[in-house]
Design a protein around this nucleic acid. Structure first.
Lengths: 148, 148
DNA sequence: GCTTGACCTCAAGTTAGGTTGAGCTTGTAA
DNA sequence: TTACAAGCTCAACCTAACTTGAGGTCAAGC
């Protein structure tokens, strides 16, 4: 192919470091878009690279694909993020990351306090009590306890 | 039942805040043990509460059940952790937690640097480059990157 | 002795984020 | 023109950590 602006799925995979199957998957989830050649093959604009990059970064931060999709959708016209948009998205995601870090720190401090105290005594341990409160929030498929 | 030392699965569930089905599950995975009544019902010693507490805490820290199981197994005689054992386990797990926190911090700092820089340019962004390195570590179901 | 609630087992379903494979079509380089 | 790499679709599989359901048993109060 010529060095046109169009990229095949294999090229996007190579340049983004994401497997072809994952790209198919993202497309099925509506996270990226492509158009097809007459032969039904996918062709991507260069902007897809930025989009994929954003997706991967957000994933690393711990954002689910569903949330990432929603965030991208919510942009005016569902456009590929401009610098401005990226500013907003990344700020929001950084804040989530901050929260997650804070949560883990709290957990670590609790753990630190408990080390050596033999405090697994059912009623007094702060870690355990946290646990109890969670379970008291009702039954049903409790999702993962840690920010994700 | 009398106020004996023995607990039914329902009682353990109530006191530990873990669903009965989860207790069955832990038992199938070898994380906890029980003996059976003549009527084939499970009965637990009180130590199971401590064991379950440890399991949940470790899970919160982001340790998988498999790893938790291995850690418990590795204790002499596969016994329920004494204060001493708990000391060791929790210290190790806290260190893992520390690492995870450090990792997230690095990610956050990268994100912070990138906010507003519009740096999603394919070749220069530090976040993106990290990405590349990760994906270069081979295929296969890459596990979640973030502390779960 | 009957009803009710707690238990039992085993199989199948769930969610997330993909991967793998089969079977078939396209595209391109020699 | 012929071969082979790349693409396509769709379904099935994978892991983790459980939950849900079906079908059947046990125990205890009235």
């Amino acid at each position: 192919m010529a060095a046109a602006t169009e990229l095949t799925v294999g090229q996007v995979a190579a340049r983004s470091g994401v497997a072809v199957s994952a790209l198919h998957f993202y497309e099925a989830r509506g996270l990226i878009r492509s158009h097809r050649t007459s032969g039904n093959q996918r062709r991507y604009g260069r902007d897809v690279l930025r989009r994929v990059a954003i997706i991967r970064i957000a994933q690393e931060v711990g954002i689910s694909l569903a949330e990432i999709g929603a965030a991208l959708e919510s942009l005016p016209e569902g456009r590929t993020p401009t610098r401005e948009d990226w500013n907003l998205l990344s700020t929001a995601w950084r804040d989530q990351l901050d929260q997650k870090i804070a949560q883990l720190k709290k957990l670590r401090d609790g753990l630190t306090d408990c080390i050596g105290c033999g405090c697994m005594s059912i009623d007094k341990c702060p870690l355990r009590n946290k646990e109890d409160r969670l379970s008291a929030q009702g039954p049903g498929a409790r999702r993962l306890l840690v920010a994700r």
